[in-house]
């Protein structure tokens, strides 16, 4: 049967996606410094090592900060822009939306170095703030994509009712629009947070001396003896991200019959 062949292909494809990723947790519990088969025994010492790693914890703190601020700012900008293009008839809306989505079509390295040049010209120091700006470039298009999909299934009559009952524009926005949009907003927050949390190249150029977690990991990859610890970290990130992503996907699909849009 054709279906059967497709099903087997799908399982094979899943294996292709999962097997490389599963090596991370497998070797993170392996009692050997060398990342090679055969496995030599079970240990949790690489995880214990993480607890004593101050540089890693500092980088983790930085990434959480950057991710949180990026997620909030990107989602705010995404929310207002998505509302503007879906609910108002604006001349040039397509062109403006195209401009905002431009970072999707520009390699990250170009985004990173151009911002680096601008900061140099303005004599601004490299910092976590500059990383946030760089990450917003990457995240705002994602946020808009998620939120536009949400707005398109949105009943404008509710807003009009609110206006008819005497609420001002902003009060309507906060008391009617925002709560109705909440699942979309939360999904956007989670997606942009995870995107920022995982972003390496832009941060690599813009972070200066303050490492984010990917930059810290990048630095560790050069030292073979540090690898098992890095894999333990990777396994933890995987577990937490999976939990967050499942939450995000459930929220995004809550009440929206549309399938997932984009990536």
């Amino acid at each position: 049967m054709k279906n059967r062949a497709l099903f087997i292909y799908a399982l094979g494809y899943l294996a292709f996606l999962y097997v490389p990723v599963l090596f991370l947790p497998i070797f993170s519990f392996n009692n050997s410094q060398f990342i090679a088969f055969p496995l030599t025994g079970f240990t949790t010492r690489w995880y214990a090592g993480l607890g004593a790693d101050a540089a890693m914890q500092h980088a983790l703190g930085n990434s959480l900060k950057v991710g949180l601020v990026t997620a909030l700012l990107s989602t705010m900008l995404g929310l207002t822009a998505a509302k503007a293009v879906t609910q108002y008839r604006l001349r040039g809306a397509a062109a403006m939306l195209g401009f905002i989505s431009l970072p999707l079509f520009i390699p990250d390295i170009v985004l990173g170095i151009s911002l680096l040049l601008l900061l140099g010209l303005l004599n601004l120091p490299l910092s976590l703030a500059s990383v946030v700006v760089g990450h917003m470039l990457v995240c705002v298009p994602f946020s808009i994509t998620v939120l536009i999909a949400r707005f398109e299934g949105f009943d404008r009559n509710l807003e009009e009712a609110s206006a008819d009952l005497g609420e001002s524009g902003w009060m309507t926005f906060w008391r009617v629009t925002a709560p109705l949009m909440m699942p979309g907003i939360l999904a956007s927050l989670l997606l942009t947070f995870i995107t920022s949390f995982d972003e390496f190249l832009v941060a690599y150029f813009l972070s200066g001396t303050e490492a984010t977690l990917p930059i810290y990991i990048w630095g560790q990859l050069r030292f073979p003896e540090r690898l098992p610890t890095v894999l333990a970290l990777g396994a933890i990130i995987l577990t937490v991200s999976v939990a967050l992503v499942i939450a995000a996907e459930m929220l995004r699909n809550l009440g929206v019959k549309k399938p997932m849009v984009g990536a």
Binding site: L24, D198, L221, G234, I237, V242, V245
Partner: peptide
């Protein structure tokens, strides 16, 4: 299908 993509890109 999407879960494996949320591991750190570097580690993937």
């Amino acid at each position: 299908l999407t879960i494996p993509f949320w591991t750190s890109y570097l580690l993937r």
